[in-house]
Amino acid sequence: MSRSFSAEIVKLVRRPSCWLLLGIALVTSLTFTYVLPYASIRSGTGGPNSDRTLPMLLPDQLVGNSLGGLPIFLGAIVLIIGVLVVGSEYGWDTWKTVLSQGPSRLEVYAGKVLALAAAALVVVLAVFAVGAVAGTLIAVTESQPVRWPSIDDLLAGVGAGWLIAVTWTMLGVVLAVAMRSVALPVGLGLVWMLAVQNLLAGVAAPLLDWVAQVQKGLPGPNAGSLVAALGAPRDTPGVAVVVGAGQAVLVLAVYLIAFVLLAALLLRRRDIG
């Protein structure tokens, strides 16, 4: 498995689209978490983030600010990474090339899962790092004190962020394995994350009680609840307290394990090519 892991890491690192997606994740996070709210505060104008005040952009709010995008926007990006890493093997017909070298399907799959878990961690750490730089710059510019969250809060934040990111990544993987392609899984994954989740939360749940109950078992609202518990701004799309943090962690962990196992089962049972 370590051989497959190292091979998958090389493929991830050398793949331009992975860096492009990481760049988009960082720019998106920076723009919507820091740049636009700060510009709004400086100019005194209103807008979608008009509730944000200067203290909310300072380094001591790093954990919440870094996690805010994961339920939807950053989650969509890591989902795409998951689809690309597995779905491209179908698109380029490279499963046969790799498997002809002797490793078992599950060995290669385990290498991919571990590499994606590492990639999800890199994305989360990079978002934290960019947030730290942005928060510090704002604090220095505004002559505010630079205070940091405690190590425990940082670790909890990174851990929660990683759990959410790796769950979305594995949703991408299971969609890619199920549909044996790239385009359709990306499309369906994005429709789910960007449209269906929001419609359920914003339209259906307030109208129908059973939808509100179902929401408590879906990964998106649980991710939103987890990041809300860790200080993510409530005006961020997808961030809302639907369940407690403990339940959210548990539900996300169950989804993660289910996605990993389901994709493994499908990959093991089906013919290649």
Binding site: R3, S4, S6, A7, V10, K11, R14, R15, P16, S17, W92, D93, T94, K96, T97, V98, S100, Q101, G102, P103, V108, G273
Partner: peptide, 23 residues
């Protein structure tokens, strides 16, 4: 099997290096 299939963004040498790791 059924024609060559490799990673288009890698060089020929790097494709073989990736496969050598798997192998």
């Amino acid at each position: 099997i059924e024609g060559p299939a490799f990673y288009p963004y890698l060089s020929g040498r790097d494709n073989l290096r990736v496969l050598a790791r798997h192998a």
